[in-house]
């Protein structure tokens, strides 16, 4: 569909090891079509009408176009910025504290009894 959506893989240097992709790398693999919208809907357990789907497709297209702008930059040798803060090793001691009561924990749940959170049946038997 859009040739210019292709990644400039040569400028991508993963830091450390592994296969970390920047958002722009990731999104540019996608062509925003019905299939993609259906897939994202399925992954997020959402359902849309056909009209909504058209709108979402349009929105997604614009979002990707926005992020795609980043691909115009020459990022040769630039490490991805993973965290906004420079801080490292923000650690806590292994102490038990901070739990809330069960009443408090369940208070905001749409469905619950006095012990459990309740959700629609996950497995069909």
């Amino acid at each position: 569909m859009r040739q210019d959506l292709r990644c400039h893989k040569s400028s991508f240097r993963p830091c450390n090891s592994g296969f970390l992709l920047r958002a722009s790398d990731y999104l540019c693999f996608m062509e925003v079509n019905d299939k993609l919208v259906d897939k994202l809907a399925r992954l997020s357990r959402l359902q849309f009408s056909e009209t909504e789907k058209a709108e979402i497709k349009n929105d997604l297209q614009r979002m990707i176009g926005f992020v795609e702008k980043l691909n115009e930059l020459d990022l040769e040798g630039v490490q991805p910025l993973l965290h906004m803060s420079e801080e490292v090793n923000v650690l806590r001691e292994d102490e038990v504290k901070g739990s809330v009561t069960r009443e408090e924990a369940l208070k905001n749940a749409p469905a619950h009894d006095d012990q459990f959170f309740k959700v629609p049946k996950v497995i069909k038997k």
Binding site: D113, F116, V119
Partner: peptide
């Protein structure tokens, strides 16, 4: 629960 899945 026959209707729901309970989560802990």
């Amino acid at each position: 629960d026959p209707e729901n899945t309970c989560v802990d």
